[in-house]
Every structure is written in structure tokens, then in C-alpha cells.
């Protein structure tokens, strides 16, 4: 689905932002991209959809070399949600905004309308409202709806939950999780380790432009030294589990920790009885 082969990248007049990156993301994976500010996460995502071209090495997105293909062509199958929804929104009604992206992807007017209504329903949005007068969370939802309307097979999310309250955050992530279950490949930048622990299956850890960690989120979350190198802390439950030690070290969610604790308590009661 997405492959980086010994990729180097540097902005004009600056030292290399990304150095010798090699990894592959398979179809249907949910990958979290972690790292400190300035580690090169957003640059990596821009390379993945062809907005930036590598200085050396090769990026293959959906089997196509991003250097050989126009970004607008790649965009038909790669959705990109930017951190700032205001850069995406350019129409004065929610419906027009969703249709704007669809006009490029779908030739049939009826199909476009149907897809737009589907998105409005999925996100519980009113089509007639002016996006510029809506809250930040709602604007983020409109931007996501506009991206998802084109049914991309690879979805790149650049800090999708920044600045959102818990309800808005869960609304966005719920829809992303649904998409992932239906087979969409997700690459998500996030600083929120709780979100990463709850939704992602694999994590890539970047630091100073280099890939310092790649593996299942469960393993990465337990590697405090690795996370520390990228100025990150593990999510609360894995951290608590690690401190408690023993069987609790495997706990990754509240439910898992509870079941372990209840199981332990049951064993103790049975032993006492």
C-alpha cells in the first residue's frame, strides 16, 4: 500500500529533515506515526501522498512512484486530513464543500449527490450551514467528510484530534475506526497516546528525521526508553501496568487491567475459602 525505500528529504536551505527512511505499510493496517515536534512526521505524510518528492530514495504509494505521478492523481485514492481544517474548506455551505471534492472524483451527478447525503448522515451534519461559522470540531468533521466522500483506500490523518473536546474527538475517531474495519489503510500522526493505544495497531516512531522504532503499539508502548527518545510518554494504562509488574504488565486497556485484577481477586478469595 505504502512503501518508503531509503528515503531522504530536506527543505531548501536546511539540513535533511528525513534521513534514510525505509518501511512498508500493508493494506488494512492502522499505523500511528509518533515523534517529537519537528521530528519530520508531517513531512513524511506529505511525501506519502506526493505533495513533497524525496531528495533521494523512492516512495511507492498504491504501487506508484510518487515522483512519476501527479499529486492530484494520487489524491483520488489517498485521502489527507490536515491539522487545520480551514485550509481545506473553501465553500460556503457544508453540502457544497463535500460536493467540491466529489466533483473531481465522480463524474455522475446523481452518484455525487447520493454520496454527499451519505456523508452528511454519517457525520450528522446539516448541509445548508456555513462551515466558516461552525466550531473547530465541526469544521474538522466537515474536512474529514469531504475527504471520506471520495472513499480513499489510504487515509492520512495529520493530528486529527488536536483542539477538539472529548466528544468531538471520539466522534472523529469512531468514524475512522469504522473505516479501518471496512478495510481502509490508516496512517495517523498523533501526540495523544491514549488515542494511539485505543485505535492503532502499529506504531512508527520518528526522532530527528530518523525511524527509531517500528512495531506493534503494544510493544512500543511498553518501551519507555524508546518513547523517551522521542519525547513521549506511554499511555496511562500500559504505564500503570508496567509499574504494577507481574501479569499486570500485559494490561493495555482499562478492561484488560480490570479483568486481570478481578481474576486475581477471585483467585485469592478461592484460595482463602
Amino acid at each position: 500500500m505504502l512503501e518508503f525505500e531509503r528515503v531522504f528529504f530536506g527543505y531548501e536551505g536546511q539540513s535533511a529533515t528525513l534521513k534514510d527512511l525505509s518501511f512498508a505499510i500493508g493494506e488494512g493496517e492502522f499505523v500511528a506515526l509518533l515523534g517529537e515536534n519537528g521530528a519530520g512526521k508531517s513531512t513524511l505524510c506529505r511525501l506519502a501522498n506526493g505533495l513533497l518528492k524525496p531528495s533521494a530514495g523512492r516512495v511507492l504509494a498504491l504501487g506508484m512512484d510518487t515522483k512519476q505521478v501527479k499529486t492530484s492523481l494520487l489524491a483520488r485514492d489517498i485521502g489527507f486530513l490536515f491539522q487545520n481544517p480551514d485550509r481545506q474548506i473553501c465553500q460556503n455551505s457544508v453540502r457544497a464543500e463535500i460536493l467540491f471534492g466529489l466533483e473531481i472524483a465522480l463524474a455522475d451527478e446523481a452518484a455525487r449527490r447520493a454520496r454527499c447525503e451519505e456523508m452528511l448522515e454519517l457525520f450528522s451534519l446539516s448541509g445548508e450551514r456555513d462551515p466558516f461559522g461552525m466550531s473547530r470540531g465541526e469544521r474538522q468533521q466537515i474536512a474529514l467528510a469531504s475527504v471520506l466522500a471520495r472513499a480513499p483506500s489510504l487515509l492520512i490523518l495529520d493530528e486529527p484530534t488536536t483542539g477538539l473536546d472529548y466528544r468531538e474527538c471520539m466522534a472523529i475517531m469512531g468514524i475512522v475506526a469504522q473505516l479501518h474495519q471496512k478495510g481502509t489503510t490508516i496512517l495517523m500522526i498523533s501526540h495523544d497516546m491514549e488515542i494511539v493505544a485505543d485505535f492503532a495497531g502499529r506504531a512508527l516512531v520518528l526522532s530527528e528525521g530518523g525511524l527509531i522504532g517500528d512495531g506493534p503499539v503494544r510493544r512500543i508502548m511498553r518501551d519507555e526508553a524508546l518513547l523517551g527518545r522521542a519525547s513521549l510518554l506511554p499511555a496511562q494504562i500500559p504505564a500503570l501496568g508496567a509499574r504494577l509488574g507481574g501479569p499486570y504488565a500485559e494490561a493495555f486497556s482499562v478492561e484488560e487491567l480490570l479483568s486481570l485484577a478481578v481474576g486475581k481477586k477471585g483467585e485469592k478469595e478461592r484460595a482463602e475459602a
Binding site: 501522498n49 505533495l51 501527479k70 499529486t71 492530484s72 489524491a75 483520488r76 489517498i78 485521502g79 489527507f80 490536515f82 480551514d86 485550509r87 481545506q88 474548506i89 473553501c90 465553500q91 460556503n92 467540491f100 471534492g101 473531481i104 472524483a105 466558516f132 469531504s146 475527504v147 471520495r150
Partner: peptide, 27 residues
């Protein structure tokens, strides 16, 4: 952001590019 959603700003046609810029005045 607009290129990432399929708008052809990477076209070589100068006039087409200018026409595509107009809706972006709003954001």
C-alpha cells in the same frame, strides 16, 4: 491542502491554475 484533495494545482497550464485559485480566496 486542495492539491491533496485532487485539485490540479500541479497542472502546467498557467490559466487553469489561476482559475483554480479563485475559490481559495474564501479560506
Amino acid at each position: 491542502a486542495q492539491t491533496a484533495r485532487g485539485v490540479e494545482f500541479d497542472t502546467g497550464n498557467f490559466f487553469k491554475k489561476v482559475a483554480l485559485l479563485l475559490p481559495l480566496c474564501a479560506p
